[in-house]
């Protein structure tokens, strides 16, 4: 194997510059949870590796006065999973982080790396869509912002262009009293999801749904959200019938494949059950407050 040239810039601007100069053979490396494994298997052989580990701003977590949370791209899954400031609706992202792979991967892997790799069955993508996140991307022309729903283009493809890196994930404040939940089904602990459901839900005092964003992972090239299906529950009491109707409508938009984890047909069968379970868990979590 040819040795890669290793760079460890201290600023985002320098990282972008080195990456742009390196052209096709250049690749950013954050936690390395996936990239190092792929390099070991000789699936990927970059000429130039640009480590993001010395860039201080990428490791920050902060909350703006308006409630928007900024998670730096280098934040490890473990840090995000235990982030006490991710409460209410925003907790869906922490819950997804806590279910990624296994402890060694969560100790190394980063949110920026995970979403840039964009495995169709990864945990963050549906959670970020449910949380209405925005992805901050830095490139030669500065920073730009892409809504999570437009970031995941499908089958390992994202909105990140050559020479660009993800710098942060921004979570807008969720409505008051919202609850976030992430429900994942996998064959064995630590595996990628067969399918997963992320939702952010809020009810008013009468038990009527005032806010709902729901996204499914592992059943298409990227997370699948269906506002039309959500509308079947918003403004109403979330009865089992209404949730079933939502699931039935949403399943029409799924595009799963047969793979070693399960058949496409099986995935279509389990998603409505995962949706019901996700609502049940979210509603249970709300109970003490109601």
């Amino acid at each position: 194997m040819m040795a890669a040239t290793f760079h460890k810039p201290a600023t985002v601007d320098d990282a972008v510059r080195v990456l742009t100069d390196a052209g096709e053979g250049g690749r950013p490396i954050s936690g390395g949870a996936t990239l190092v494994a792929m390099m070991n298997a000789k699936l990927v052989e970059p000429d130039v590796l640009v480590s993001l580990s010395a860039i201080a701003e990428l490791k920050d977590f902060g909350r703006a006065p308006d409630g928007t949370v900024r998670i730096g791209a280098m934040r490890r899954h473990r840090e995000t999973a235990f982030e006490s400031d991710l409460a209410g609706g925003q907790a869906v992202v922490a819950k997804a982080a806590s279910q990624i792979a296994n402890p060694p991967v969560r100790n190394m892997g980063t949110i920026g790396g995970s979403i840039s790799f964009a495995d169709p069955a990864a945990d963050y993508p549906p959670a970020l869509v449910a949380a209405d996140a925005t992805i901050e991307i830095a490139g030669p022309d500065g920073r730009r912002f892409v809504p999570a729903e437009e970031f995941f283009l499908g089958w390992y493809e994202t909105a990140v262009e050559p020479g660009e890196i993800v710098t942060a994930v921004l979570l807008p404040p969720a409505p008051d009293r919202a609850v976030g939940h992430y429900e994942k089904l996998c064959r064995v602990a630590g595996d990628f999801a067969l399918a997963s459901v992320a939702l952010v839900l809020a009810l008013d005092g009468a038990g009527t749904v005032t806010h709902l964003r729901l996204a499914v992972g592992g059943c298409g090239g990227g997370p699948v959200r269906c506002p039309e299906a959500e509308a079947l529950v918003v403004g109403a009491v979330p009865s089992a019938e209404r949730i079933a109707a939502l699931a039935e409508r949403l399943v029409e938009d799924l595009d799963p494949v047969d793979d070693s984890r399960g058949s496409a047909e099986y995935r279509l069968q389990i998603v409505p059950r995962l949706i019901a379970k996700a609502f049940e868990e979210a509603l249970t979590e709300m109970e003490p407050a109601r």
Binding site: W155, D259, S260
Partner: peptide, 17 residues
């Protein structure tokens, strides 16, 4: 080879794209 590691189901989606 390298691309053969991805499942046929996913490769078909990518090919169709």
């Amino acid at each position: 080879g390298r691309l053969g590691r991805y499942g046929a189901g996913m490769m078909k989606k990518i090919a169709t794209k």
